Amino acid sequence: MVVIVMGVSGAGKTTVGQRLAAALGCGFRDADEFHSRENIAKMAAGIPLTDEDRAPWLEALRDIVRSALESGEDLVLACSALKRSYRELLTVDAGRQRWVYLWAPREVLAERLARRRGHYMPRTLLDSQLATLEPPEGAMAVDVSPEPDVVVATILQGLGLQRSS
């Protein structure tokens, strides 16, 4: 199974995704690692990405999902997946994939981004991401205002998954 943890910047995709993968005893991949240098430079300059900018990135992520499913590898993927069309592209086998939508009030997200250090995504792009976001239908929506371990426990329970021993 592949669980895709999605949401805007500051929602905690990486933190929650890593902890969820550890709880499940499976692999973790962060979509941020697959952006081109050009895309990273654009975002670092405060310029929102276009669909054209994202296309090769989304194809690479689809390949990762496909590979995990073909090999039977369980995986948690952290990915913004802001638009419905992106999620459709990343859905290789709906029966073996789960979507978890991490959300929080804008104020919580902005505060987190203000505290974050060493990431190329500036907090000035939060409003652009919120404007681009098409909230997913059929995904498990989780408020990430609580501590990450509480969020992970909520996800495990909501998806009917067990911690690995």
Rank of each mutant, 00 (worst) to 15 (best):
M121C: 07
E134S: 12
L61Q: 09
S128H: 02
L69R: 08
L90G: 13
R62G: 10
E111L: 07
L77H: 07
E52G: 14
R96W: 08
S71Q: 15
V92Q: 08
T91W: 12
L77C: 12
D51G: 06
D53P: 06
L75Q: 06
S71L: 15
R123V: 11
A110V: 06
G138M: 01
L61A: 00
A81H: 01
T132G: 06
A139K: 05
A114F: 03
E70V: 09
L109T: 03
A139H: 02
A68K: 09
R117S: 13
R98W: 10
A81N: 05
Y101W: 15
H119T: 04
L90K: 10
E107P: 09
C79W: 05
V76L: 10
R115D: 02
D74A: 15
S67I: 00
L113K: 05
P105S: 12
Q97K: 13
D53H: 07
Q97N: 13
R87D: 03
A68T: 10
G118A: 10
L58H: 07
C79D: 09
P122T: 09
M121Y: 02
A60Y: 05
K83Q: 15
A139W: 04
E88G: 14
M140S: 03
G118H: 10
A78E: 01
S67F: 01
P105I: 02
D63G: 14
L102T: 09
A55C: 00
H119L: 10
A114M: 05
L61E: 10
R66A: 14
A78I: 04
R66S: 14
A94Q: 08
L125P: 13
A131R: 11
L133W: 00
V65R: 02
E107Y: 03
L89V: 14
S80L: 05
A110E: 15
L82I: 08
E73G: 09
E111G: 13
L61W: 02
D53V: 10
R106G: 00
P135N: 12
P105M: 12
D63E: 15
S67Q: 14
D63V: 03
R116V: 02
D127K: 03
P122V: 11
A78Q: 04
R117W: 01
A131M: 02
M121P: 06
P136Q: 12
L102C: 10
D53E: 12
L58S: 04
Q97I: 05
Q129A: 10
L109R: 04
G138K: 04
R66Y: 11
L69N: 07
G72S: 10
V92R: 02
D63Q: 15
E59C: 01
E70P: 14
E137I: 00
P136L: 14
T91V: 11
G118L: 01
R112P: 00
L58T: 01
L89M: 13
D63L: 11
I64F: 00
H119S: 07
S128R: 07
D127I: 00
H119A: 08
I64H: 11
D63W: 09
E59M: 08
L61V: 02
R98T: 01
E70C: 07
D51R: 14
L58Y: 07
R106V: 01
A60G: 12
P105Q: 14
K83S: 11
S85V: 14
L58P: 05
M140L: 15
H119G: 02
V92M: 03
L133D: 02
A114H: 12
M121E: 09
